[in-house]
Design a protein around this nucleic acid. Structure first.
Lengths: 149, 149
DNA sequence: CTGGCTGCAAAAGATTTGCATAACG
DNA sequence: CGTTATGCAAATCTTTTGCAGCCAG
């Protein structure tokens, strides 16, 4: 975690309280928060932090490659702090829960020359969709979303 | 294409002019339009069609499994008419172009019991990201987006 | 006929932007 | 100190909703 702050400083980032808090909120595995959730949690440590700053910081972190946007098909983007260890996702089609799939899994699929249609591929993301354990056992009950705790 | 209309009628759909036009716009391979693009194109054939109707129709078609939302990380969702033949996507990180990867490719990755964290997986989506041929050869020039022609 | 669509306009939700002030280095 | 980030509020963009009238079956 301090690694991150050092890396950012090296890249010429001003280390402000709000950036520190956002970076701190975005820590751990299976963390996939929306901008609004980040803002809510950050506010607990730094009440004056503004939404705009959260958005700015998130966008900067994405640009620096420190966090990643996760495609959920839902209205709001989610951010995944685990950008340095490439990994794939499991998404529950019922309640929206997202989980990281642990490290060195599934033989990375590759494309033939013909299949890649001239693209220079740099990243491969796999998303597995289905029912999470909770939604499997309570088919009708809507599981709570993994938002703010 | 008439297959689609028949299928819809069987499922109790009223076949209106606007639904027919939306379905018609969403036809072919490598078609990944935003709702707004669908509306623009549909308007060329049916000028009075409203945005709300386009959204309603798109949501209905998704619910029926006739089209699919594509996760692009961009603001607006895109819709892929090719929902019956499962396929993966190639997305250009520079200009946003999306292309379908042809049929029976890449050995479908699977998860072990441990990796799937109790999920019952029903779909696997693979997204390859990189530079499309155009953006590879014109590194600075911004390629036009594949929107309305 | 009649319930399910449509269009319009307004609402809601998510993200960005402009600008004056504050604060990091 | 000078730049660069912050906060606020307003602007944008995307999608949803409420409601009266219309039309496919």
């Amino acid at each position: 975690m301090s690694n991150l702050q050092e890396r950012l400083r090296e890249r010429g980032w001003r280390l402000t309280a709000q950036r520190r808090v956002v970076a701190e909120v975005l820590t751990g595995d299976h963390v996939h928060l929306t901008a609004d959730e980040v803002h809510t949690r950050a506010s607990r440590q730094l009440p004056e932090i503004s939404r705009a700053t959260v958005y700015n910081t998130l966008n900067d972190l994405v640009a620096l490659g420190e966090i990643r946007e996760v495609g959920t098909n839902a209205r709001a983007k989610r951010y995944d702090p685990n950008a340095h260890r490439p990994h794939h996702h499991l998404i529950c089609t019922e309640c929206g829960t997202i989980r990281d799939i642990n490290p060195p899994i599934t033989p990375a699929p590759t494309l033939t020359e013909a299949e890649s249609l001239g693209f220079t591929i740099t990243k491969t993301e796999i998303t597995f969709r289905g029912l999470c354990p909770t939604c499997t056992s309570h088919p009708s009950t809507r599981a709570p979303s993994p938002s703010d705790a």
